[in-house]
Design a protein around this nucleic acid. Structure first.
Lengths: 204, 204
DNA sequence: CGTCATCCTGACCGTTTGGTCAAACATTTT
DNA sequence: AAAATGTTTGACCAAACGGTCAGGATGACG
């Protein structure tokens, strides 16, 4: 059984190779659209060898998703109650946008899962995710009530940060098609635009 | 050959039934993840009968996408150069949000296609879509330069409208999971929030 | 070097997939 | 009512799918 925690370096290396390859395939085609052969080819391994490291296709997908959820929420977790409200939120936007730029495959994997109805991570959405958002929404509502930022619905503020930042990862093809070739990097432009947007929105 | 324009009522009815069923399946599982059997079952027809009306799985997908593109751009097309700038943009946001509420499957179909790298509609993105956005971006830039709305990057303004409105369709499951059961309809809340957001952003 | 656990693969299996086809059934036209 | 046209299906096919397995190759280690 190699399906527990990895014991050797080969296991660690190959499991990582597989997850990296699977991330690329799953994020593009979704769970049902991805095939073990695609993943195996991308990983440079044989199909039976994949199944030596993971018991099934679904196990690979689950491993990716559960590993992802934590990373994905980190930027929000770092929202600090002791910081300056506007700066904290702008910093959060920036962190989230950087994740879109540096981990677009992860963003698309997540998007695929949600669009599909979140069959595998619904519990995490209603548990872990909701708990964290509730907590941070309360924090933002506090800032709002104290007049330190303009009054906003904190939940929809968070949604709008997710939507705006993830859009540049998930819809990258569309963004680049519309902007054309001879422009600045979309992510640089987005950072300026989003900073300005949220500054205007939240300044009391 | 029934693959040209429909001639009889039965053809018109069945083609529509098939497209409606296919929309549900493709929008949830993506092109590769969807199966003809799923579509056939959803449509209440036999699989060979599907292929009597459409030559292939891909033909169904293409029929959906090409029919969609026009509908999808209509709200933006209606942005009127002669209207009051802020009202025009707010009305556009509202139209787009209504489409997310009333046609979430279409939104997800589109999202799936883009996330996948737009293999079937890239030309439309770089042609039809880009042309329309360029035109409307110029209009918005004009309003901006004339001081009728606050200065903004018109392209990213349009992106942000897309991102914010489509988020409520594509990530519906997540939105509802986070908001919980005992709240207002997410789309009503979103309308108030987005109206306020764009008003603050664009008021000079 | 030997040995033992780990790692890898070719061949294979049952099922599902997109698609075909001849023939049956239904409808319209004459 | 008969002929012609349009619609539907059961049976079928080759390819692709997720997964298994016996056994060979490769490494770790005394």
């Amino acid at each position: 059984m190699t399906h527990d925690r990895p014991r050797t370096r080969i296991q660690r290396r190959n499991r990582e190779t597989i997850l990296d390859a699977a991330l690329g395939v799953f994020s593009q085609y979704g769970f049902r659209g991805a095939t073990l052969d695609q993943i195996a080819t991308a990983a440079g391994l044989s199909k039976p060898n994949l199944l030596y490291y993971f018991p099934s296709k679904e196990a690979i997908h689950v491993a990716l998703l559960s590993g992802l959820m934590d990373t994905w929420l980190d930027p929000l977790r770092a929202l600090d109650a002791n910081g300056a409200p506007l700066d904290e939120i702008l910093a959060y936007v920036r962190r989230k946008l950087l994740m879109s730029r540096d981990f677009p495959r992860e963003s698309r994997l997540f998007a695929n899962e949600i669009i599909q109805g979140a069959p595998r991570i619904r519990p995490a959405l209603e548990g872990e995710l909701k708990t964290l958002v509730d907590e941070k929404a309360a924090l933002i509502a506090g800032w709002s009530a104290a007049g330190r930022i303009a009054p906003v619905d904190p939940y929809h503020l968070i949604f709008s940060i997710w939507a705006l930042t993830q859009h540049y990862a998930d819809f990258d093809v569309q963004v680049r098609a519309v902007l054309g070739r001879d422009r600045d990097d979309p992510f640089d432009e987005a950072e300026r635009y989003l900073t300005s947007l949220f500054t205007r929105l939240l300044t009391p």
